Deep mutational scan, measured.
Amino acid sequence: NNDALSPAIRRLLAEHNLDASAIKGTGVGGRLTREDVEKHLAKA
């Protein structure tokens, strides 16, 4: 659900052409954090 993404996370996802649903969020309520996105990028 993109409504739960902060603007910074949306921008980071867009810059790397990532789909938020492909990344498991570890923030409050399962929200994506910058660390989640960076860890996903490091794996790729």
Rank of each mutant, 00 (worst) to 15 (best):
A44W: 15
E38S: 08
S6D: 15
S21L: 08
G29K: 07
L32S: 00
R34C: 05
V28W: 09
S6Y: 05
L32P: 04
T26H: 04
P7K: 09
R11H: 13
I9G: 01
L12G: 03
G27W: 03
N2K: 12
G30I: 02
N1L: 11
R34E: 12
K39S: 11
P7Y: 05
R10L: 11
I9M: 11
T26D: 02
L18N: 01
L13W: 02
L13H: 00
D3H: 11
L12K: 06
A42I: 11
A44V: 15
L18R: 00
L41V: 11
D19C: 06
E38D: 08
A42N: 11
L41P: 00
D19T: 10
T26G: 03
R34G: 05
K39E: 11
A4L: 12
A20R: 06
A44C: 07
S21I: 07
G27E: 02
K39F: 10
R31S: 13
I23Q: 01
K39T: 10
E15K: 15
A14K: 13
T26Y: 02
H16S: 04
D36F: 01
E35P: 06
R10T: 07
L18W: 02
D19S: 12
E38L: 15
L41R: 01
A44S: 13
K43Y: 13
K39P: 04
A42K: 13
V37R: 00
V28L: 13
L41I: 15
G25L: 03
K39Q: 12
L32M: 06
N17Q: 09
E15P: 01
I23L: 10
S21T: 10
K39A: 12
L5R: 04
T33R: 09
E15R: 15
G29L: 09
D19F: 05
E38N: 07
K24H: 09
A42G: 09
A22R: 10
I23Y: 00
V37D: 00
G30E: 04
A22D: 14
E38C: 08
K24F: 08
E38V: 14
L13F: 05
A8Q: 10
S21H: 07
T33W: 01
A14T: 11
R10I: 15
R10V: 13
G30R: 04
L5E: 06
L12C: 05
H16K: 03
L18S: 02
R31F: 08
R11D: 14
N2C: 06
H16T: 02
G30S: 05
E38T: 09
A4S: 14
S6A: 09
A20P: 14
